[in-house]
Design a protein around this nucleic acid. Structure first.
Lengths: 147, 147
DNA sequence: CAAAAATTGTTAGCATGCAAATGTTATGAA
DNA sequence: TTCATAACATTTGCATGCTAACAATTTTTG
């Protein structure tokens, strides 16, 4: 009669602290806090990813950048708007395709990239610090399978 | 002179696809999509966590529930508001402490818990499906260390 | 070629998630 | 007891992140 004591039965058979989604949210929270301590210019992790992808790939359309950085088209629009306000990217209409707005790094944005990548390394190191070197490698390998 | 070819040098020394924060964001995205396919009543992962914690712990104050479910006080307020609108929780002023609002499960909320826990199990299973059984165990162990 | 389908970008709405400022109430220390 | 401190809750502001609806443009297809 496990049903007879619902409270005990439930907490034994289901533990929120063992659920992938809950733990992923907590790990994300911790990473976001670490990120904020390392990156200047008031950049967010999302803005950071968009800038790095733009440097990797070169100028491209807004939607294309969204796909490169794994962001929804509604999300990437806001991100590009804010990066433009901060002076790190510019947008210009494409001659080839009148629908497209080409997004490019400004000089200020280009100048920031090296610093951002160095900070990114430190952020990942600190995020993974609770794990040993082999655990870190294993964790990243498994995490990549879940994307 | 690795500096001479900035584009190539950067992409070799820094890969966004190997950064913990970026991968955590992608894994979260995938989990959120899976969640939406399994949970009824229009519940979000956050609302889900709050309900389950409330069932585990019993009625408690809003801030306390936020700590149990790892949510900021501004976040838990919105979550409780929406759960109240949906009829799954009620709030009542505490006699002992006039600052507190006690949050409790309604009958509808209580009735939902079992179903939610079953769905939660399936969601974690599907989220971790790309991993083998031993990899799943290993991943959850490492992930827990990063929270 | 012309209609259907796809792509690009915008906007609105909803739900986290955090910081910071505010007001109320409770508690602990001088 | 009084005063400083802490805890509780609310509100505002900003930044994701998604859905859905829309208009403009391009591509595909019959």
């Amino acid at each position: 009669m496990t049903i007879a004591d619902p409270g005990a039965a439930e907490t034994e058979t289901y533990r929120l602290d063992a659920q992938a989604g809950y733990l992923l949210r907590l790990a994300n929270q911790r990473h976001a806090a670490i990120f904020q301590n390392h990156v200047a210019a008031g950049l967010t992790p999302t803005q950071f990813s968009a800038l790095v992808r733009l440097a990797e790939h070169g100028a491209c359309s807004q939607n294309q950048l969204g796909r490169l950085a794994a962001m929804d088209i509604a999300t990437i629009k806001g991100v590009v708007d804010r990066l433009r306000q901060k002076g790190f990217v510019t947008t210009a209409p494409s001659r080839d395709d009148k629908r497209r707005h080409l997004v490019s790094l400004t000089e200020a944005g280009q100048a920031l990239i090296g610093e951002l990548q160095a900070a990114g390394q430190r952020i990942t190191e600190e995020t993974l610090a609770p794990l040993s070197a082999s655990e870190q490698k294993s964790f990243l390998r498994l995490l990549k399978k879940l994307t």
